[in-house]
């Protein structure tokens, strides 16, 4: 008889297995810790291995770490499979990777901008497409994308950062609409000011810590929210910002 070679079999039923992309700091790291507290096995992906190790020992529980630069798109399918097998299945994916370099008032730097595009949006697409394929076919799963209130309008401050977040909102909305028929939840989180390195040294208000932010994000996803602000009251800011007429908006500096 021909020789069967058995590949390791993955038997997965819905449970508590999560994957956080961009886990080394800020909201991503806080989410890993919160998920571990809630009994999840967590896959944590980020560029810096040392930070991941620190996170894993800080969080305790089952944390599977992998160092990876999200702009290396070609690595994603194999890495995704590796992590899902290690976790024994997958129920939740959070894409929280993102960079926001300083951009000068009249700086038009393609290298800087395209790096942002590759990491913030390209990375999101590369990871979320893998998650979408798995979640659609298994007809279960929750996908969370960490966007930003910066995606609401084209502000003078950082054209590409806002553009990547707007693109993310659009792309995730389409995934949400595609995957709704199989019961997969896609939640777009638009955080306001969160006390992380991204906001350090900036004028802020309504500031919350990343731990509180993580708790609120998971609560929103559990309620199957589509696009939502964290904390919720930023909805009001988003609403006002969206409705400022262009002729006025272009004279505003924020």
């Amino acid at each position: 008889m021909p020789q069967a070679t058995a590949a390791p079999t993955l038997v997965s039923t819905p449970g508590k297995r999560a994957l956080v992309i961009g886990a080394s700091s800020g909201i991503g790291a806080a989410l890993v810790e919160e998920l571990v507290r809630r009994g999840y096995a967590v896959g944590a992906v980020a560029r810096r291995a040392s930070e991941l190790q620190a996170l894993a020992s800080r969080a305790g529980g089952k944390v599977v770490i992998r160092a990876h630069d999200v702009s290396r798109f070609a690595e994603v399918p194999a890495l995704f499979e590796d992590l899902v097998r290690e976790l024994g299945g997958l129920d939740l994916v959070v894409f929280a990777a993102g960079i926001m370099p300083e951009v000068e008032r009249h700086e038009y730097d393609s290298e800087k901008d395209l790096a942002m595009l590759a990491i913030n949006f390209g990375g999101c697409v590369a990871w979320c497409n893998e998650a979408a394929k798995l979640f659609r076919t298994q007809r279960s799963g929750t996908l969370i994308g960490i966007s930003s209130i910066a995606g609401e309008r084209g502000r003078k401050g950082n054209p590409m950062y806002g553009a990547t977040k707007a693109a993310m909102n659009h792309y995730l909305e389409a995934l949400r609409n595609r995957l709704a028929e199989v019961g997969v939840v896609v939640t777009t989180i638009k955080p306001g000011f969160i006390d992380t390195v991204m906001t350090r040294g900036k004028k802020t208000f309504w500031l919350i810590g990343p731990d509180e932010c993580a708790r609120q994000i998971l609560a929103k996803a559990a309620k199957k929210k589509g696009e939502t602000f964290v904390p919720s009251r930023w909805w009001f800011v988003g609403f006002v910002v969206r409705w400022i007429p262009s002729a006025i908006f272009r004279h505003m500096n924020f």
């Binding site: 399918p77 590759a118 893998e130 798995l134 007809r139």
Partner: peptide, 19 residues
């Protein structure tokens, strides 16, 4: 350049639930 300079694996491979 690292940005957008990528060669996807061929044939394409993904992990899915196949029924």
């Amino acid at each position: 350049p690292t940005v957008f300079d990528w060669t996807p694996a061929r044939p394409a491979s993904s992990l899915e639930y196949v029924e």
